[in-house]
Amino acid sequence: MLVTASLVALSAAAPAVAADLAARPYTKAPPPMVAAIYDWSGFYIGINGGGGSAHTTWDFVGTGSEGSHNATGGTVGGQIGYRWQTGQWVFGVEGQGNWADFSGDNVSAVFPGDRNRTKIDAFGLITGQVGYAWNNVLAYVKGGAAVVSDKYDVFSTATGASLGSTSQTRWGGTVGAGLEVGFAPNWSVGVEYNHIFLADKDVTFTGLVGTDRIRQDVDMGLVRLNYKFGGPLIAKY
């Protein structure tokens, strides 16, 4: 009889003890892993600087070559463009304008008393781009049209006096390649090589008899800093 009474008492106490126990806490499942990847799409603007060399050959029409020289120096300018990314492929268009100071000269092989000097003081590039991105690293090639502002001078080797000069705006083509790295939100830095090829051009000088046919190609290396408008990252689950 005593045992039965004890069991009844324990049965009555069990619900009360269970009610006193704290509710089992709810644990939220952790969110899925998210990888942030760089998005190269959008408008961008930037600055650039570097150096270049224009290999120039002067031929006196009807007589022969006056010789060649490299017009070398520095350049600084800016660029603006738009890129759009699909998968890892990146496509873009860009306009670039630079001031330059590429200059050089040589003694004429036809007229030993003369020196021929070439100077490039500005150039512009209008190009399309095709690139491939590894997250925040972009490698690309480019090509399009180029315009160059040239000045040509003939001066005396003995006195340095000017014998004639003229200026021209020359159109040609350009090809190049670059590597760019996104290093901070919206900012990227890169290096780029460009080659400009210009068609032969006949040049006459006021006060001088005859015509020079001038051939010119330009090679340059640039360091570029770009700011891209819009968000630089997208989330990938």
Results as ranks from 00 to 15, higher is better:
A16F: 06
G143Q: 02
E192N: 10
E66W: 04
F102L: 07
I80F: 11
A100Q: 07
Q85F: 10
N136G: 09
T174V: 06
V203N: 00
R224L: 11
R215C: 00
N186Y: 04
D202C: 07
M33I: 10
T118H: 15
G143R: 10
D219E: 01
V189W: 11
G52A: 02
W40R: 12
Q129R: 15
G143H: 11
N186S: 13
T211K: 02
Q88K: 01
V175E: 01
G173Y: 13
L179I: 15
K201V: 00
V3Y: 15
V141L: 10
Q85R: 11
G77S: 07
G67Q: 07
V107E: 03
Q96N: 14
G67M: 02
S11M: 07
V141W: 11
D202G: 15
K201S: 09
G81W: 14
L138Q: 01
L208H: 09
V76S: 07
T166F: 03
S188R: 06
T159P: 01
D217T: 14
S68I: 00
S11H: 13
H69G: 14
G87A: 03
M220Y: 14
S11C: 09
N70W: 12
A29K: 14
A139M: 09
G50A: 05
F43R: 12
W171S: 02
G49C: 10
Y26A: 13
W40Y: 12
A18H: 04
I37T: 10
S188T: 07
P185E: 02
